[in-house]
Design a protein around this nucleic acid. Structure first.
Lengths: 229, 229
DNA sequence: AAAAGGTATTTTGAATACACTGTACAAAAA
DNA sequence: TTTTTGTACAGTGTATTCAAAATACCTTTT
């Protein structure tokens, strides 16, 4: 486990700061799947008492990021290929729903935002900074989610996306796929401009399925490496 | 607030017992939307200390059943018509996905279970016991969820269904709709037997949309009553 | 050397204690 | 009468303490 440090948003209760800190640490891989989350240890490391740590862990538990076994404590949940398939199966239909709703509801301002997001994505696509690319990609999709006007849907999609966050950066390193990402984003914008639900949903579907392919390949690779140790 | 009592599953940690207890109390309406959840009060009422209460509230918070405001505490979240529409918008596509997967994957044993569930549903449909009817209805749909083989999807659907749990019993009191419920369930079984995805998804779609209609009507009625007080 | 058992240590579970904040109510000033 | 300010109280936020369970380690026995 890397050294952790509190995200110090001074106004929030400590438990929320701890929650965000741990969450990010898990999603970025600073704390690895299978690793134990020990309360005293974390409390010392973050300079707080066990209470906020415990409350943060309760939330992580419900989010599925950690697995609790009573009287033994929490470990970081590990994602199997099966899990990933299940998540993506769900994600595809929700992304299609989001695209459909966005096609119906998107307004000029949101359209502009989307184009800006595309531009920023293109600007970083050839840089050697997977983190930045990933974050611009997310920003693009966030614009679409926003346009749906359905906050529940946004929540769910963010949560589902989060589940594969750990593998996100890895698959972006696969240079060959980057330009097809841009292509697909352009197609999405075109569909949204024409309010063409059929083609919009079709594009997003292949977009996600492509992603699935690559992520699962990476997962297998990683597993092979890890397994051979 | 009605008198609460712990669901005393002796083996689970107290925090989980408290969590389940509070959750059920919220979903059944024993604790009403807008009501404050005061830690000391709940602790006294349930005969435990504040610690497990707080940890339970953290989980309820993440589930969206309570809303926290820092230094003021938690209140039970109230569901607006808008919220309900958003939930149903999502639920429709997930129910359709579930039906599609079930059509593809359901096996003989599961099919038998489904028919049993239908039979039990029919057995109670004319009784004057909305709770029982509701639970048999749930059992039927659970069979379908089970057949999808996608645990993530099951989780999500259970959670979405839960969000309208409070209005469930009310709308079942509407006698006229009961028999169309049975009709629709029969149609679903037929579709599953023929593995006819198109008709299966179409039936479930109208099933949910009908439900939406009735629930929203009830919501308006309830609001009118509540508003006039 | 391997297995079994017992003790010490670590860690979680729950309760309690203390600190801080917001709110309500009352008293004083305008 | 209205506004302001101060004080008491109620409730949350965090830390600490105590209890019980799990784990690790060491000893003993076969």
């Amino acid at each position: 486990m890397k050294d952790l440090q509190l995200n110090s948003n001074a106004m929030l209760p400590l438990r929320d700061v701890v929650f965000q800190t741990l969450r990010e640490a898990i999603l970025t891989g600073d704390i690895e799947p299978g690793e134990r989350l020990m309360e005293i240890h974390l409390a010392n490391q973050l300079g707080v008492s066990r209470t906020p740590i415990r409350e943060a862990i309760r939330k992580l538990e419900l989010e599925g990021l950690v697995v609790m076994t009573p009287r033994k404590g929490a470990i970081v949940a590990s994602i199997t290929e099966e899990d990933l398939k299940e998540v993506l199966e769900v994600r595809v239909v929700l992304e299609m729903l989001a695209m459909e709703l966005a096609c119906k509801k998107i307004n000029g301002e949101q359209m502009d935002g989307l184009k800006r997001a595309l531009k920023e994505f293109q600007d970083v696509i050839d840089l050697d900074d997977p983190n930045k690319i990933a974050s611009k990609d997310e920003a693009f999709h966030d614009c679409i989610y926003q346009a749906t006007g359905n906050s529940k849907l946004m929540n769910l999609l963010n949560n589902l996306r989060e589940q594969m966050y750990r593998y996100r950066v890895e698959y972006i390193k696969d240079i060959s796929s980057r330009h097809s990402l841009v292509e697909e984003h352009i197609l999405m914008i075109e569909a949204l401009e024409k309010r063409d639900i059929a083609s919009g949903t079709s594009v997003i579907k292949t977009h996600i399925l492509n992603q699935q392919e690559r992520i699962i390949q990476n997962l297998r690779k990683e597993k092979a490496i890890h397994g051979s140790k």
